[in-house]
Design a protein around this nucleic acid. Structure first.
Lengths: 114, 114
DNA sequence: AAGGGTGGTTACCGATTGGATACCGTGGTG
DNA sequence: CACCACGGTATCCAATCGGTAACCACCCTT
């Protein structure tokens, strides 16, 4: 499983422009995408989500856990977060939305400019 | 084109539970769904969106217009709102998300309870 | 014993969101 | 003329969201 890149959300995914939101808060969608490839640790998640504060990361993870999308596991030396089946099933519509956004990116920008 | 029902969002679509959001604000998704079948008038939209305040409806519609999803037309005797092509293209992923929500509704509720 | 990494929590604060309510101009209608 | 529907605005207020910064307990290494 590859390490998460620090620039994962920097420029590719200015999600404020996207007309979609996953989860209740601003970061939930990005957190989900970070968990796509398997379980991650708290500190690991902070790399791609460089601009998130520890408070918000905790808050997001707790909300995702409460809603059954993420499972938190306290190990001996580590705490890991991973998608549940329900959370994984969310990835499908999420990817469709990202595909939609790519397809209509130019139109979105045009509309915003004027 | 059938009239919009007052209970369109009452119980079926408690969108606060949904882990998706369309548009920037709370109501945008519901407004889009109200426009599925064709142009609607301001007062017509207030029927299914019974709990929306006029301020929020205006705000939502203006945002949707700004972003190119909705076209506002001032007629002689009426003002109508309708989906643009871009807005219509949003319906596809939106429906997929609603389908997802229906499929996983029980799991969503279960997770919320505990 | 001291220091560092992990995985957070807490307090505080400003900005944004959302809701309730009242009001308003225009154009028909009785 | 009075009244009503339409399509909104204007104000005010409460709650929520998100950010900064400080702090903390635990474990490991040196």
């Amino acid at each position: 499983m590859a390490a998460l890149r620090a620039d994962m959300f920097e420029e590719i995914c200015p999600s404020t422009l996207l007309p979609f939101r996953i989860g209740t808060d601003k970061w939930a969608g990005m957190v989900l995408r970070c968990l796509e490839d398997g379980p991650r640790r708290y500190s690991e998640l902070r790399v791609p989500l460089a601009r998130i504060s520890p408070k918000m990361l905790t808050q997001s993870l707790r909300a995702l856990e409460r809603d059954g999308f993420v499972r938190r596991t306290v190990g001996e030396r580590r705490v890991t977060y991973e998608l549940t089946d329900l959370g994984r099933s969310l990835l499908e519509p999420l990817k469709l939305m990202c595909a939609w956004a790519e397809d209509h990116w130019d139109e979105l920008l045009d509309a915003r400019e004027s």
